[in-house]
């Protein structure tokens, strides 16, 4: 019957005195939070780089550069090459592989198909890890809530043995349980924000790539129609 009021409520004490399920929940949330932040930063860098490279290549393309030169740069360059450049490279390679006598429709179909394939692969790469962010964003609050409910359940169960219950008896248990919710929210909020932002940015890039594919196809089709343009200018 020691109803001491003084309790050490430091964070480490609370975490170490929590029950095993709550500790597991906290660990899980910590890992999820760490990975989601890791992916947030990785995606941030990756998407920023992809946007920059796309801007650069689009500028170079529409400034009227030589298609052959662009292709040489894309295919031969050991340096980093953007997604759009890779799409163009695949299409142009497919286009030049065909013998001159082949029908224009078949050439365009295969060119378009090659560009589509690379486009799908690039989009896959850009959208990778986004489902993880979505999962963390939607599930981690529930995991945190589960830890909290479990902790509060235990706090109240321990209370049943005490005749005179004061708030001091429940407070540590609830505080320790609420840490789980805090961690869940800490993991979820940035993940949701990042997911929404990156999803919109990748979809913007996707529309740019798709319209670029159509435009490249048009340009190549014009080349078939006017074969006397050996330099490859637009």
């Amino acid at each position: 019957m020691n109803s001491t009021v003084t309790n050490d409520l430091s964070l480490f004490y609370l975490i170490s005195s929590a029950s095993l399920p709550v500790q597991l929940v906290m660990l899980l949330l910590l890992v999820a939070s760490f990975f989601s932040w890791w992916f947030i930063f990785r995606k941030l860098f990756a998407i920023r780089q992809a946007t920059r490279q796309t801007d650069e290549f689009e500028n170079a393309f529409w400034r009227g550069a030589d298609l052959n030169a662009l292709y040489q740069h894309a295919a031969g360059g050991r340096e980093t090459v953007g997604s759009m450049e890779r799409i163009f490279e695949a299409g142009f390679r497919e286009f030049t592989k065909h013998q001159p006598g082949v029908e224009a429709g078949i050439i365009m179909d295969s060119t378009r198909g090659a560009m589509r394939a690379v486009y799908q692969r690039e989009m896959d790469k850009l959208e990778s890890h986004l489902p993880f962010l979505a999962t963390v964003g939607s599930v981690s609050p529930y995991i945190g809530l589960f830890g909290t409910v479990w902790g509060i359940m235990n706090a109240f169960r321990e209370l049943s043995n005490i005749a005179q219950a004061t708030i001091a008896h429940v407070a540590p248990g609830i505080a320790e349980a609420l840490i789980a919710t805090a961690m869940g929210l800490f993991a979820a909020i940035p993940a949701v924000i990042a997911y929404n932002r990156y999803a919109s940015e990748t979809s913007q890039l996707a529309t740019r790539f798709e319209s670029f594919i159509d435009e490249v196809a048009n340009v190549l089709q014009r080349r078939i129609a006017q074969p006397r343009n050996p330099a490859g200018h637009l």
Binding site: L30, F39, I40, F41, L44, A46, Q49
Partner: peptide
């Protein structure tokens, strides 16, 4: 193949940032 190597810029940097935030 070589492009795949360049695909992910700053993995380590991202991990460090994540650690810092935590």
């Amino acid at each position: 193949q070589p492009d795949n190597h360049h695909a992910e810029p700053g993995k380590v940097r991202a991990a460090l940032f994540a650690l810092l935030i935590h």
